[in-house]
Structure formats: C-alpha cells, structure tokens
C-alpha cells in the first residue's frame, strides 16, 4: 500500500519535471526544427510542428550566401586559441600557488579574481583605442588575446581548486624518494592533474565561444566569430526564420554537446569553488 503511494507520487513529479524541462528546452527545439523547414513552413499558421517537408536547403544557403564556414572557423580558432594560451600561462601559476603557497598567495588569488569583477565597459574605451592604433581591430589575434585575458582569472582559479585537492603527502613521498622537480611534475602531478585541466579547458572553450561583448565590439567582418555573424541577422531582409535557425543551430550545437559533458565543472568554475 505504502509503495503504491510513493509510486503515484513519483509519477506526478516525473510528469511535472519533464513538463518544466521541455518548456525550458522548447525554444532550442523549435529553432532546430525550424532550421529544417522551408521559409514558408517556418511562418505557417497554424505552426507546423513535425509534419512539414524536411529540407537541408537552409544549411546550404547560409553557407553559400555568407561563407558561414569561415565565421565558424573564426569561432573555433578564437575559442581554442584563447583557451590554449590561457592554460599555458595559468597552469604554472596555479601549480605554484597550490603547492608552494607563500604569505601573499591568498592576496594574489583574490586580486586576480577582482579583475574578473571589473565590468567590461570600464576598459572598453582604452582597449578599443589601443587596438585601433595597433591595427588589431577586426583581427582574430586581437579578440583571441582579449578573451584569453578575460578568462584567465577563471582558469587560474579553477585549476587552483583542482590542484589543491591533490594530496601533499604524495609529493612529500616522491621527494623523499629523491624525485627531482621535473620528475615530480612529470610522473606524480601530471596524471593527477589531467582531469582538472581537461574540465577547465572545456568550460573555458564554452565561455570563449559564447562571449558576446568583446567579439561584438572588436570584430566586424573578417575576424567575426559566430556571435558577431549571427548578430547580422538582427536587420533582416525578407523571410529569414529558417535561415536564422540553420545558422543558429550550427552555432550552438557543438557547445551544447560539450556543455552537457561539463555540467559539474561548470558549477565549480563559475562559482570559483564556492559551491561544489
């Protein structure tokens, strides 16, 4: 008898939860579906949900009309490049602060975090003017550097919280056994640090891919990643819902998939370890 009540309860909550989840997910689902419709079907009254002529024409047209792939590659280069560069700078720093903490370590960490709290508009104007003078406006290098610097505090913090969980005793033991610093890094730390580095990388790629303040302000066409490219759909000509959907679907698909793999790390990374 008691079992039956809990079962009913479970079903009620299941229905409720799935209902809410589908409602929240619906705009994404609708965008994906619309990307396979003809422009006519996309604005049909009543709306066509599943029963329409599925077509890939929009994907072809988006590519043919505006060289979608080059913007996609810009996004890839900017996201991967800024992440790689950031890790290169951050790994030694996080490693040193986690395993050789000094009196100033906490202050340094907090100061790094404080740079992340600075609103972007506070530095937009000097960066814009400097970039103009240096010819870095609308260049991939420029955006790549800015995004790397913007996310550097998050990378260092995330790595730091992961590295700090590596037990110090293991290091001591390896030192007792006479391992050199290099061997210590190579054989003891690296294997234990890889999972943390991988999740940091994943989160940073997501953040860089979706960043839409600096990319919109610093790029216009040549170096424009997908954020800027999609923004050009805000002044449309004629029917464009299906094409907008196709461009959007391609822009969000890779990150959606990566994001689902990095849910747990997302919490740690974006709360700077305050919630785990």
């Amino acid at each position: 008898m008691a079992r039956k009540v809990t079962n009913t309860r479970k079903w009620i909550f299941t229905c409720l939860a799935w209902g809410v989840a589908l409602l929240i997910f619906f705009p994404i689902l609708w965008t994906i579906l619309t990307s396979f419709k003809t422009e006519g079907d996309a604005v049909a009254t009543p709306p066509k949900f599943l029963f329409f002529d599925w077509t890939l024409a929009n994907y072809r047209e988006v590519q043919a009309r505006s060289d979608y792939f080059s913007h996609f590659m810009n996004s890839v280069i900017i996201a991967l490049g800024s992440t790689a560069l950031g890790l290169l700078v951050a790994i030694p720093a996080a490693w040193a602060m986690a395993f050789q903490p000094g009196k100033q370590t906490k202050n340094v960490l907090m100061w790094m975090l404080s740079t992340k709290m600075m609103p972007a508009v506070g530095v937009l104007i000097p960066i814009y003017i400097l970039f103009q003078r240096m010819g870095l406006l609308d260049s991939r290098t420029g955006v790549l550097i800015v995004l790397m610097l913007m996310n550097l505090p998050i990378i260092i913090w995330m790595l730091y919280t992961y590295f700090r969980e590596i037990p110090g005793e293991i290091l001591e033991a390896s030192r007792m056994d006479g391992a050199s610093l290099w061997n210590e890094i190579r054989y003891v730390l690296t294997p234990m640090a890889v999972p943390g580095i991988a999740s940091t990388m994943l989160l940073n790629i997501i953040l860089a891919w979706n960043e839409a303040f600096w990319t919109l302000n610093l790029t216009t066409s040549r170096a424009a990643p997908l954020t800027t490219f999609i923004a050009s759909y805000s002044s449309p000509e004629g029917l464009f819902y299906a094409k907008l959907s196709a461009a959007s679907t391609m822009a969000i698909a890779p990150i959606l998939i990566m994001g689902w793999f990095s849910q747990k790390q997302l919490v740690r990374g974006l709360t700077f370890g305050a919630v785990k």
Binding site: P27, I28, W209, N210, T227, I230, M258, G259
Partner: peptide, 13 residues
C-alpha cells in the same frame, strides 16, 4: 540536461 541547455546558447542566438 534539458533544463541546463539554454545556458550554452550564445547570447546573440
């Protein structure tokens, strides 16, 4: 997974 998805959609999209 469904609930988290919107967070990964870029703002312009």
């Amino acid at each position: 997974i469904l609930v988290i998805a919107p967070f990964f959609v870029m703002p312009t999209v």
